[in-house]
Amino acid sequence: MKTPARRLLPALVASALLTACASNPNNPYDPYEPFNRKVYGFNSALDRNVVKPVAEGYRAVTPSPVRTGISNFYANLKDFYSLFNNTLRAEPEKALNDLMRFTLNSTFGLFGLIDIATPAGLADNKTTLGDTFASWGWKQSNYLVLPFFGPSTVRDGSGLGLSFSMPGPEQLVYHNTPEAAAFYGLYGVSQRERLLGLEKQLDEASLDAYTFTRDAYMQMRAKEVGTTLPKDSDEEDIDIDDLVGDDASAPAAQVAPAKP
């Protein structure tokens, strides 16, 4: 299954986006760090000035059931892509599951506004084109921050780009560019609303929010596709027993409980 696409796609994306960037050898899975940091900065500024305030307004004016309906509507369209991807991955059971979810939610669930498939026992196992590439053998992929979308990898970003270029059920919803912009704008705001508050927590928990986000995302994604991240040559195989040695039994430092 090592298709030409597998060799072609990363090359395409890499050459289109990244040839101008000097590579930074610091991190084995983030060679495009200077470029990624720029996009990260762009996304953060956009979020601070536009997306976050809009998402807060959206939360203030819409009742929770409406927001759930909107979020379900987009999730239902993703089930359609998941059906396609699970077919490509030769996962007939999951594909059938997705087909039933999409059918049930699009009809009895009023065009996807109500998710009746999950309570009916049909698992939500959304699969993206990036997951499909991973199951075809493209497990390791470098970190890539996409404008608007945020953390991704070269593999997942290529998958997303291809999915956008494919005809799908969302093209029944919009017919021209302004309608498409409204469609994706609402999607972005709906997604962002669910993550309100996360940016503050991220800022509190990290010394460097960029590195924290990257490492957490890459660890999570590696687990999802069933691989481990490449390590720095000098970080290989740290044995914790060896590292701690005889101070293993040292008592935990005393810390006064945090005052709210």
Binding site: Y217, Q219, M220, A222, E224, S249
Partner: peptide, 28 residues
Amino acid sequence: TAAGWKVFNVSVEGASLVTVYRNQFGDE
């Protein structure tokens, strides 16, 4: 340990709350 079992790593969806700091600490 001599004082029973102790937790030293926690991961959420595969991301470790501990090793996620290693690169940030290394930079410092």
